[in-house]
């Protein structure tokens, strides 16, 4: 139920991101989601890949600092207000969200939003109890 997210440290320098995408392309990694949190001099790239273990290994072999973080992927209907439903449930149940981002594609006409929450087990439990669906993998 938990999804492995690969986080990568990137300096804000020309060509660093394309170096990552080159490595992933050569390793034939399929990406499902990607987002960057950036500051003045560095960024953290977060990747959801179909092959997370291989993705991590490739990046580490190429001297990137990368690690696995567990996140929740929640499947939502593709309609206005769907995201708010989850947010409301999380708020009511004190699930603290650290960050979230959307994936690159629809799955069976549904969108998937990735959530990093403080307590992942609690988060997953709340999703389940509220009749919502967390993806297991891509």
């Amino acid at each position: 139920m938990k999804v492995k997210q690969i986080s990568v440290f990137l300096e804000n320098k020309n060509g660093r991101l394309s170096e990552v995408t080159r490595i992933l392309a050569e390793g034939e990694i399929s990406l499902r989601a990607m987002t960057i949190a950036d500051t003045a001099d560095f960024g953290i790239l977060r990747i959801i890949a179909e092959q997370p273990d291989k993705c991590l290994e490739l990046l580490q072999q190429n001297n990137f600092t990368a690690r696995v973080t567990e996140v929740i992927g929640v499947r939502l209907d593709d309609r206005p207000g769907a995201l708010h439903d989850v947010m409301q449930v999380f708020e009511d149940n004190k699930v603290n969200i650290e960050y979230l981002y959307s994936t690159l594609m629809l799955m069976d006409d549904k969108v998937v939003i990735m959530f990093k929450v403080e307590d992942i087990d609690h988060g997953l439990d709340i999703i389940k109890k509220n009749g919502m669906e967390a993806i297991t993998a891509f």
Binding site: S7, F9, T39, F42, I44, T65, R67, E98, Y99
Partner: peptide, 15 residues
């Protein structure tokens, strides 16, 4: 250099 031992997926931890 950012070492795996203190790398985090959150910018505020690194800050």
């Amino acid at each position: 250099e950012v070492e795996p031992s203190f790398f985090s997926d959150e910018t505020r931890n690194l800050e």
